[in-house]
Design a protein around this nucleic acid. Structure first.
Lengths: 203, 203
DNA sequence: TGATGAGTTCAACGCTAGATGAATTCCGCG
DNA sequence: CGCGGAATTCATCTAGCGTTGAACTCATCA
């Protein structure tokens, strides 16, 4: 008995279905709480297969991230254009991305960063420092203020993610993207371009 | 050998040192990632002692929370007073609380809520719905807007916590509380009292 | 003195996790 | 046909978790 099945010719896309399941699991539960075993279960696959394809859990996570997120393209793109609505465009873009299927990967990074140290570094050092700060620099008048202003922007954007996708606070979680963008955009705009208290550039 | 030590008369405060270690661990790692064993280790105590005193991990967490946080008092108190600076007072109070030693417990709830479902419910249904929304209602002109406005406020406040205490984004993480309050307060103020787009009260 | 009970420790159970290595099946190529 | 290697499964290892129960020590009090 115990018929070991070996290769099943139809499933060439096993690897892809593992990736899909992993993306979903990481987005819903974060890096630590998404287990290889549950991912394998969702993909209807033996846990050892996951290791066969991706080696380690970290590598699986990185493989999931190498999808289509490219904040390095999206953020500057959102900030380009009329300076006065940059804030609203940024918020709208962010929500648009996360609500889309492709955004699942982005949500996975974020959720993971909240409870796992090395993914937090990933987010902090890549997305915020490299991408956001650079893009913001081109918009801000006083270069000394760029770092602090991007921090502030990050505050508001991260807050949306936490409230809407992690804590699922109502009525925000069910609100329309346009409503949110209209409500929050101006605040981000202020962080980006409005004059700020003087104490500001200290350090 | 293996001299079992039994009662050590000096340590009557063992219970307190467990509580301290637990508060710290929950604040730094969240509910799931803070293990009873590591808490016991930090308190230089046998893991079984933790159960002896607190029963279960959930009860230990609740014991940690029964400290001096009382947002039910603090939030209304911050929102009372001149309507025009309510936002700034709220931000300043929030940061003040979390930066204080007593705020470790609050940070523990928040961090835990980010990765654990039942603590998330705790935060959502108690702090946000019961406390924040009620307090905001008294400040908002149109009562239909209260829920959405508190969601928005929660966004910004949660964003500060995530960026400053969880992700530790610089320069925000090291910034002075007054600077942050001055920079972010007006945005919270807008969420509280400024006119908002019309689409707003829908649902 | 002797009993009580709180403080404390140790060992173990059952569970889940990530990871590994051997065994099996079968496609495709020579 | 025969063979190599990829795909797949199973059994297992190690490590950590929360929790339990029994054992031991000792201060206190009748």
């Amino acid at each position: 008995m115990a018929r070991r099945s070996g290769r099943r010719p139809g499933n060439q896309d096993t690897r892809e279905s593992i990736l899909d399941a992993a993306r979903l699991a990481f987005a819903e539960k974060g890096y630590d709480n998404a287990s290889i075993r549950s991912i394998a279960g969702a993909a209807q696959v033996d846990p050892a297969l996951v290791h066969h394809y991706f080696g380690t859990k970290e590598k699986l996570f990185l493989a999931v991230m190498n999808a289509p997120i490219n904040p390095a393209e999206l953020v500057p793109q959102a900030l380009a254009g009329p300076r006065e609505q940059a804030g609203e465009r940024l918020v709208r873009m962010a929500i648009g991305v996360w609500d889309s299927p492709a955004g699942t990967a982005a949500l996975a990074v974020f959720r993971s960063a909240l409870s796992n140290e090395w993914t937090a570094r990933l987010l902090r050092e890549f997305v915020v420092t490299q991408v956001l700060r650079r893009a913001v620099s081109e918009l801000v008048l006083d270069p000394d203020e760029a770092a602090m202003r991007s921090s502030l922007v990050a505050t508001q954007i991260a807050g949306i993610m936490v409230a809407r996708y992690v804590l699922k606070l109502e009525p925000l979680a069910s609100a329309d993207a346009d409503v949110i963008a209209a409500a929050i955009g101006p605040n981000v705009q202020r962080f980006l371009t409005e004059p700020m208290p003087e104490v500001f550039k200290a350090d």
